[in-house]
Every structure is written in C-alpha cells, then in structure tokens.
C-alpha cells in the first residue's frame, strides 16, 4: 500500500515537473532547433535571449505593468477588503461576488472588451489599457488575500486605538496595517506573478513595438523555432520560484493562500 502511494506520488511529481526539466534541458542545447533530448550542450541560447531587443522591451513593459497593476490593485483592493470585513454593507454579498468576477470571466473576453472600448473607442494608449486590464484581473487576489487576514484580526483594537487618542484613519495605520502587512506582501507577490504570466488579456492588447513578454514569446515562436524560447521560459520559471521561495521564507506565503 505504502509502495503504491509512493509510486503514485513520484508519478505525479514527474508529470508536474517533467515538462519543466525538458524545457530547462532544451535551453542548454547546442543545436539550432528546439529538441529533446538536446543536441549537445551550450550556453549560447541563454546568452542569446538577452540580446534580442523585442524580449528586452517586452520584459521591461511586463515588469512595469506587473508592478503598476499590482500597486493599483492593492490601493483599490485593500479599502474594499476593509469595507467588506468591517461594515455590514447593503449588498455586501453582491459586492463580494462582483469583486471576484474577473477570476471567472475568461481573460479573452476582458481583453476583447478592453480592446474594443478602451483602445478603439477611447483611443487610450495600449500601455495604459494593459495597466487597466491587469489591475482589473489582480483586484480579486488583493481583496481575497487581505480579507482573509482582516477576518482574523479583531476589530475592537481599532476602537481601543481611537479611545487612546488616534483618529479613525490614524488607528488604521497604527494597528491594522502592521497586522495585515504580511498579507499585503503575499498579495503583492501573488498578483505580480499572475500579471507576469497573464496571456489572454495581453494577447489582445499589443501594438507596434508594444507587447507583453508572454505575447512576444508566442510571436517569436511562430517564426523562430530555436531553443532560446526554452531558455527564456526556464529563467522566468526560476524567477517566479525564487520570489515564492523568498516570500515563503520571510513570512510564510502559504498562510495566505
């Protein structure tokens, strides 16, 4: 029985990690096409990806949009989470559901809607539209993670702080913020990675010279089937793992998910 469950565990792990191993290995290939097992070993593709200007530009855009949208989602999401957790709102349940809607609505639809109305009708620059679209997608993460943390925090400490002389807002920053800081950091990491990996919304929102890294990678692959795409994917995965690992070590990310 134990043997069986252990074998099963390894099978699942192989299933999950196998493709990753294939990609990492393929990136180290000395050959010119994406193959597995790799034809000889070299670092040339890992070096080459840093010299492709499209990758550089879209990487920078992805980071900016990721950070910007994450910050915006937190600025909008934390007050929403607070209001949901602390006040008996009219239509509170409806608000809760609406806030989660971007998790359910397919990204393709959000992307198309943004393209049709924000880009074509309002003539907004693609970068701004990307920022808006990603913010929309990330708000549910910010609200959920921060709500969970607020639900576990007594609300009477705010009243205690007010009675000791703080204003309502002052009390929030003095006794609520320090207690949800971990959750906010966790929401930040989670949101940033989500934005960075986002494909469907980004797919619709690109213009001449403006595209997010995953979109750029898709396009690149259509024309050039070389191992650089494997090298880049491996690096991105490594970066995400590093972020998660660090947050987990620093504050136990898993507590908030």
């Amino acid at each position: 029985m134990q043997f069986l469950s252990r074998s099963l565990l390894w099978l699942v792990l192989l299933f999950l990690l196998g493709p990753f191993v294939v990609i990492v290995a393929a990136g180290f290939s000395a050959g010119d096409t994406l193959t597995f097992p790799p034809q000889g070993w070299s670092l040339r593709w890992y070096i080459k990806i840093f010299t492709i200007p499209e990758f550089q530009h879209s990487f920078v855009l992805s980071v900016w949009v990721g950070v910007g949208a994450t910050l915006l989602a937190l600025v909008l999401g934390v007050p929403v989470a607070y209001a949901i957790a602390r006040y008996r709102l009219p239509f509170g349940e409806t608000i809760r559901t609406l806030v989660s809607a971007p998790l359910i609505v397919p990204g393709i639809i959000i992307g198309l809607a943004l393209l049709r109305y924000v880009v074509f009708t309002l003539n907004a620059p693609v970068e701004i539209t990307l920022l808006l679209g990603h913010t929309t997608l990330l708000i549910p993460y910010a609200v959920r993670v921060v709500s969970a943390s607020l639900d576990n925090l007594r609300s009477d400490i705010e009243e205690a702080a007010v009675l000791l002389g703080r204003s309502r807002l002052g009390a929030f920053f003095a006794v609520v913020m320090p207690n949800i800081r971990g959750a906010i950091l966790a929401a930040f990491v989670l949101s940033f990675i989500t934005s960075f990996n986002q494909v469907p919304v980004s797919l619709f929102l690109s213009g001449p010279g403006v595209s997010m890294l995953p979109t750029q990678m898709l396009w690149y692959m259509e024309y050039t089937y070389d191992p650089s795409i494997a090298a880049l994917s491996a690096l991105l995965a490594l970066g995400a793992m590093l972020m998660v690992f660090l947050t987990e070590r620093l504050l136990g990310l898993s507590r908030y998910m």
């Binding site: 007594r154 009477d156 400490i157 205690a160 320090p178």
Partner: peptide, 13 residues
C-alpha cells in the same frame, strides 16, 4: 474617556 474591553483588545503586534 478610557475603556477597558471585555476582550482586552490588546494590540497583537
């Protein structure tokens, strides 16, 4: 006016 709460309401951090 000071208030001592039944739950104490100490600041946990």
């Amino acid at each position: 006016v000071g208030l001592v709460f039944q739950s104490y309401a100490l600041f946990p951090h």
